[in-house]
Design a protein around this nucleic acid. Structure first.
Lengths: 345, 345
DNA sequence: ACGTGTTACTAACACGTGTTACCCAATGCC
DNA sequence: GGCATTGGGTAACACGTGTTAGTAACACGT
């Protein structure tokens, strides 16, 4: 880009007015009197020169970047979370655009310190952060929050009141298990999406337990296995459940990825789904639709989560304290083939 | 964030030196003599105050934003391209980080003008742009290029020498068809990924044609159908191919998404894959692995494309004219079940 | 005694904008 | 006629940094 980029001074010169006037006109400052002719001259001059105000200068003088960042932590669940990235980003940018904000994408790689993102905040690269996959041992995060820096978590951090956006895992898991109960199953196993160190895992397990108890069935932890984000863990967990005597007639797998592994185990044991064992997943990743049998699952609204996160964050930035800073979105049960409902209806 | 944010002036005051010295020390400016004691004092003062230089001020004075943007156009292929977004972004940010750049994500929505992204460039929000899904009728793009603004296209625009990054579609399609030929097929149909207005479609078709001709087989356009990004189009195209007498014994579908539709058509006709008809796809989207039968396909290295695009763009920004501005990455054939190779080996 | 270099540092300008405080002329009011 | 008010505009400061040109002190060779 050649250096002959026009500045507001050039526009002022061409229009025969002061730089102040140019600024007043171009920003449509209210309650200020500029004659229509002058206004017109300025507009034409700006147009003619192809003037665009310099973003850096604006940021500096206004003390605002009009940018928010999505901080994307690596971790064992990275591949899993990648499935939500496009939807989440579209939601984020959609809401951001409505408020005139830009979105920065900032993954934290394995060779970086976990708190590498603080520079974004402290160095005033952005006005606020959305943190995906927060860890409770992250005290840089706590400090930022104490310093009133605008933050929204994607996912939950127990024991804090940091604003966050998440899906209602208890309700979603409950709906899945309820569905199996309605189909007549009474011996229902569960494979978690991840170890219980993850809040979401605890909550989905809790939903499973409550659904059972709501129907007067005891919670029995011999029917529960722990997944770990990937197919492999699902395969092993299902093998272990099949070793039970008798095995469950249905299994709620709290992650589609893990469910795909479970499905493979069933195929290797020549068990038909849903006739032999019924399955319900969680997440509604793209592959759930395509796999055979198509997976009944709990839909996680990635777009909606992104939208809500950006909207909440921007509200915090602009200072109008929102009534509710803990957003929980509802999930939706997507009935396909793996649960057996299609046959029993 | 309270307004007591420390500036370099505060650091200078605390260390008992001038602001200039602070800047020199903190930026490690070479060939300048500062006594070790002073250097130490400055560092300690900065540390003690928790000083982070203001990014906006830096951008302004340096005339660089150290930011690049990924412009993501909507379009009929959006859902299709979403499959590559996570990989592409990881690649982009990975390379960007090595050079100290940030990455902005900017989708252009349906209700915006196509050239809404120029503001990013003209207003100096970013130092360069990566454009995904460029259209040849976009003259804002041409102007930007003429004004020497650093640009890299993801995908190709015929008849220009704008730097671009893409996969070698001709080679990839050729390898896919070659694979089917080696397996003994001689009557091979093709379903394109999209209408021929898309450069990638033309090129994949060209790869198909060349592979046939390389084996001395005539190119026969009665064996070719046109997909349109989605499952539905694949289903219809395959139905049409099945109406031929005799139908092809194998089909190269230049998009996994479309291939999934084709697969459904075959299932509805009770044709087994690969025994009845063999299939090879293109793209290697996540679902290709999970579907039954698992899809043999041509892998598109999204991460590599992102990395290459960012690296090329940053080279252009920093002024060291790269030797080659048209990057073409190789694809890789992923052999799974749908082609029949697993049985014949 | 004098110029020449070197070390260690600083004063002052520049980047391009938004905004406050002020000014001048014309008008309205009694 | 004197005074307040309003319309239309500008001079000057501020934002927080990077960088150039310059200075003061001191060492050194002759």
């Amino acid at each position: 880009m050649p250096s002959e980029r026009p500045t507001s001074r050039d526009v002022a010169r061409l229009a025969g007015v002061s730089r102040t006037t140019v600024s007043l006109v171009l920003n449509n400052v209210p309650d200020v009197h500029i004659s229509p002719e002058t206004r017109q001259r300025v507009l034409e001059a700006a147009q003619q020169l192809g003037y665009y105000p310099d973003a850096s200068a604006r940021r500096l003088v206004r003390g605002k970047t009009h940018t928010i960042a999505l901080v994307w932590h690596r971790g064992p669940d990275r591949l899993y979370r990648d499935a939500f990235l496009p939807g989440l980003l579209q939601g984020l940018t959609g809401a951001a655009r409505q408020y005139g904000y830009h979105v920065l994408f900032r993954p934290i790689e394995a060779d970086e310190p976990d708190d590498a993102y603080v520079e974004l905040a402290r160095g005033r690269h952005t006005d606020g952060l959305i943190l995906s996959g927060p860890r409770s041992d992250d005290d840089a995060l706590i400090h930022l929050y104490q310093d009133q820096f605008p933050l929204v978590l994607h996912g939950q951090l127990p024991e804090t009141d940091i604003p966050s956006v998440d899906v209602d895992n208890v309700q979603g898991a409950g709906a899945a298990v309820e569905h199996l109960l309605r189909l007549g199953h009474r011996r229902i196993g569960m494979i978690t999406n991840a170890p219980l160190a993850y809040t979401a895992s605890q909550q989905r397990l809790e939903g499973y337990r409550r659904a059972l108890e709501g129907w007067g069935l005891p919670y029995d932890d011999t029917l529960v296995r722990y997944g770990n984000f990937d197919e492999e863990s699902g395969l092993r967990a299902m093998e272990s459940l099949l070793a039970l005597d008798p095995p469950p007639t249905a299994v709620f797998v709290a992650s589609d990825m893990v469910a795909i592994g479970a499905l493979r185990a069933l195929r290797e044991h020549n068990l038909r789904v849903p006739e032999g064992i019924a399955l319900v997943g969680f997440d509604n990743i793209a592959a759930a639709r395509f796999i055979t049998p198509a997976l009944t699952t709990v839909h996680v609204p990635a777009f909606g989560l992104g939208w809500a996160a950006a909207e909440l964050l921007i509200r915090l930035i602009e200072g109008d304290r929102p009534a509710e800073t803990q957003v929980r979105l509802e999930t939706e049960l997507i009935v396909r083939e793996s649960c057996g409902a299609k046959h029993s209806v």
